[in-house]
Design a protein around this nucleic acid. Structure first.
Length: 512
RNA sequence: GCGCCGCUAGCUCAAUUGGCAGAGCAACUGACUCUUAAUCAGUAGGUUCGGGGUUCGAUUCCCUGGCGGCGCACCA
């Protein structure tokens, strides 16, 4: 630890000791408050509107609690801003009101301390509603300086200008508590996140869906193409995996007779980390018996629209400079149709070698030797089509090679009944008419397992129990997966998934 | 995994061709009873990410390692 930090910490320790020496408990057991800061201001404004202010313009007495964010001392008086769950409130200390002893204790406070103050509200000369403090008490001493920025507020527009501050992204994720303490806008992101999850849950509950919980610890993983995290259960003496998708368990529940089920939970994928990938992430999956992918498309359209309205107050989303409208209906295109428009020719008619050439041209790199047809099509689509899908767009009818759990489309060989929803160039939802033919499903899973033996380490093992469930009989079913984190990114204009996950996965901190 | 950029005081950042390592904020001391990026005067705070090299001299140039950001690749 550098000398600088040591000094800062030591100074605060000394103030802590000085408080105790004066018989003050820096961490009292209890405290009281009458108003949150926003409620206090509202109470003052109400009294003012009703002409109930005192002769000196004083409003109602309040008792508020908060963290000290700024301090402006003026000799025998001082101004500070406190922050609590309701926002910021200015407080004003005067020696002639507090008395010598109470006032003389103020220098033992630091930015970051929690205090409680009691007094009447008034307006300062500049018009700010402020507590004229008659009594104050420390509620919790801060021993480590918060990376507080200076904030300049334009009195006319209310626009905030932040001077210096806490900018290092990794430090902010690592010390999220400090990031949150210092950045109200970060707290807002997670309020929106909670609203999105609540909105999705309500929308599904209202439509007769049953919320369920399926295992995160699984003896076999499946339902997506991803490498799993592996763990070990001591008592059973067996390997377990953290789930990579909920899909196969939720379909077992449809077999069991629940007609509409959903789960909002964590999936875990042992893969790289980047702007749109965190190793653990939140997935919403929902399945509806007697529905197909077209019905699910309408449902997804409504869900996205409803949640957007709820969270933003309107149908539009501003994401990274683009304005997106979630007003239904969303655009619809087919996988091969969109690809043909972008490519200038029909990809379905190209042989693998030609596809390989087109892919190399589109991505600027030669595809891997082992890439199969499905993989090539996927890469080509990602490079040529996805970035252009800014307005909400359903892409339907994917190649069978990419979709081992989806029903084929009648009359269109090589295509399955599947859609993905893209917004702002990102995949938000993935859905299909679920394959319920146990024999076809077995054949496709075994083909996947075969490619696993051939070296594709993301293909799955065959889940015999899942196939047994299908053999009992699963009704026609539509299923959808929505990446909740990515939806929250859109709705909060966040560039990185780490900005919408409170504690994203990071390399462990070295040393202390 | 590859490429580019970066790592200097608690925070945000400077430092000329390679020539005494600086500023603002935070902290500390003092002044100041309506301030709000408060102001004014002063003080302290540094393994310039680590290691090696070139040089009279390295924050600066070279090599190497670490960490991070961004982009690419990967991610049915």
């Amino acid at each position: 630890m550098s000398t600088g930090t040591g000094q800062l910490l030591r100074t605060r320790q000394e103030k802590l000791a000085a408080l105790r020496a004066r018989g003050i408990d820096p961490y009292p057991r209890r405290c009281t408050r009458s108003h949150r800061s926003d409620e206090a201001v509202a109470a003052f404004l109400a009294a003012e509107a009703e002409g109930k202010l005192g002769t000196d313009g004083e409003g109602p007495p309040v008792e508020v609690t908060g963290r000290i964010l700024s301090w402006r001392g003026h000799g025998r008086s001082a101004f500070a801003h406190l922050e609590d769950g309701g926002g910021r409130l200015q407080v004003y200390f005067r020696r002639d009101i507090l008395g010598r002893e109470s006032f003389a204790t103020l220098p033992l406070l630091d930015l970051g301390d929690w205090i409680g103050v009691a007094g009447v509200l008034f307006r300062t000369r500049t018009g700010e509603v402020t507590v004229r403090v008659a009594r104050w008490r420390i509620l919790s001493k801060s021993l480590r300086p918060l990376p507080l920025a200076k904030v300049e507020v334009d009195p006319e527009t209310g626009a905030r200008t932040v001077h210096s501050g806490f900018a290092d992204r990794q430090s902010r994720y690592r010390r999220r508590y400090a990031d949150l303490a210092v950045h109200p806008e970060v707290r807002d992101v997670f309020r929106v996140r909670a609203g999105v999850v609540a909105g999705l849950r309500r929308a599904l509950d209202d439509r007769g869906y049953l919320e369920v919980e399926t295992p995160a610890l699984q003896p076999l993983y499946g339902g997506a193409a991803a490498r799993p995290f592996t763990t070990y259960h001591n008592a059973l003496g067996t390997t377990l995996y953290l789930r990579i998708a909920d899909e196969l368990y939720l379909k077992r529940l449809i077999v069991g007779g629940f007609e509409r089920v959903y789960e909002i939970g964590k999936d875990f994928r042992n893969e790289g980390i980047d702007r749109t990938h965190n190793p653990e992430f939140t997935m919403l999956e929902f399945y509806e018996a007697f529905a197909d992918y077209r019905r699910m498309m309408e449902l997804v359209e409504l869900l996205v629209h409803e949640v957007t309205l709820e969270v933003t107050g309107g149908p539009d989303i501003d994401y990274q400079g683009a304005r997106v409208s979630t007003a239904p209906p969303f655009a619809r295109t087919t996988f091969y149709g969109a690809l043909a428009s972008a490519l200038g020719e029909d990809a379905a008619g190209l042989d693998d070698d030609a596809l390989r050439v087109r892919t190399a041209a589109a991505t600027g790199e030669a595809p891997d030797e082992g890439d199969g047809r499905g993989r090539l099509l996927d890469r080509l689509f990602s490079a040529l089509v996805e970035p252009a899908l800014v307005q909400p767009t359903f892409v339907t009818d994917y190649p069978t090679e990419l979709s081992p759990l989806a029903k084929t489309k009648p009359g269109e060989p090589g295509v399955v009944e599947r859609f993905e929803l893209f917004i702002a160039g990102r995949e938000i939802a993935n859905a299909f008419s679920e394959l319920n033919d146990p024999i076809d499903q077995r054949a496709r899973l075994e083909a996947q397992a075969g490619s696993g033996r051939a070296g594709d380490d993301e293909a799955h093992p065959v889940d015999e129990d899942f196939l047994r469930a299908l053999e009992y009989g699963m009704p026609p079913t539509g299923g959808v997966g929505i990446g909740v984190d990515r939806l929250v990114m859109l709705l909060t204009d966040s560039a990185s998934i780490r900005d919408v996950i409170l504690f994203p996965v990071l390399r462990p901190e070295e040393g202390r």
